[in-house]
Write a protein that binds this DNA or RNA. Structure first.
Lengths: 204, 204
DNA sequence: CTGTGTGAAGGCTTTCACAGCC
DNA sequence: GGCTGTGAAAGCCTTCACACAG
């Protein structure tokens, strides 16, 4: 089997999400047609994507929901159910700390850091906020690989460097800057203003 | 000139962002090489993208920062500096309300709605939260085109339908579902859990 | 006969190589 | 000489058409 394209991997996550909802509705099997419609792609695309999982469906019948979920989960990793650190507990960081979606997807924020851990926090947080000085110790000790970066752009690169130095290999970056990292580190950027700007372009 | 690809439009926003920082540093001109490195793309790609703006650079010299910013801004729209409504003021919605990046990018959240506007809010918000019943009136009255959706997936489709019905044509969707909308409506999805999941796949 | 799996075609995006202008 | 602009080539992803299994 050829290397799986990045786009395909992304869509596979989407299918998994959608299947979990179908399972909740007690659905046992599903056709590529139905699942494709639920996820906003074309049926052929979905079948092609699923090819990367190996032999899965039954011709003339469709996919077993449970089976497909199992195969997808397995494919997406081994690497899920990972501990994650959050760096930066401002407005956005606070929201991320309280976000239930991560948990459902198999991730747990096990530590949160902020330059000023003592600063007033308006709500009770589920986690004690640690000072940045503890970053290295916690990450190394627990062997954490994934970090969420929710800090101002001005300090993002510097903090990213520190994270990479202590063993982080995957960064979900909310700072509106392009991080320069070694090739061995993978970065996903979420730039909220960019999304809006991009959206606005398409308004006629 | 051919139609500008979606990916290109996206990158053009990135260049604009980066140029604004360069301008703050008093830089007057910049080469495709330099700007490309700052934004994480290849110089040829950048030049190809900039082609869509028409004749911009000086050969043998580079791009005038101010000039390029002006052309990019113009190209990206007319449609920036738009009023935006926020629907859903939970953890994430609150963070978005306080997020300064939108403002800097030329967007203002002019109204925020929640199913339960009276619910306890831990911090002072810059805007009064309105009940969902006011949605139609506010959007129609002010001719708003863009909405940010930060509500649970279970109700997202229903609310999206309402938004479309009252004139919204662009949705920034944070709910982890694929929204079904008419072709005339453009939707950008930001699924935080998906981003993490995707990231985890690439850890070796 | 239904609906998956897949080679081949088609379309889109990126990269290359170099012509052209300052 | 240096750096942009761009046709052509390469690469990647999506769609098609249909073989084939249940």
């Amino acid at each position: 089997m050829k290397r799986t394209p990045r786009r395909t991997i992304y869509r596979l996550s989407v299918y998994l999400r959608s299947l979990q909802r179908l399972k909740e509705k007690q659905l046992v099997s599903v056709s590529s047609e139905t699942l494709a419609r639920a996820t906003g792609v074309k049926p052929t695309q979905l079948r092609k994507d699923i090819t990367h999982l190996g032999q899965v469906g039954k011709r003339g019948f469709g996919y077993q929901v449970e089976d497909l979920i199992r195969k997808l989960t397995e494919f997406m990793g081994a690497n899920r159910f990972q501990p994650v650190v959050l760096v930066g507990v401002g407005n956005l960081g606070t929201a991320l700390l309280s976000y239930r979606g991560f948990e459902r997807a198999g991730f747990e924020i096990v530590a949160a850091f902020d330059a000023d851990p003592a600063r007033f926090r308006s709500k009770e947080l589920p986690l004690k906020i640690l000072p940045m000085d503890d970053l290295a110790a916690v990450i190394k000790e627990r062997g954490i690989k994934i970090a969420i970066l929710a800090i101002p752009g001005t300090v993002a690169q510097e903090v990213a460097n520190r994270l990479v130095n202590v063993g982080i290999t995957a960064i979900l970056n909310f700072a509106p800057v392009i991080l320069l990292t070694p090739d061995s580190v993978v970065v996903n950027n979420v730039d909220l203003a960019l999304e809006l700007e991009n959206l606005a372009y398409f308004i006629q």
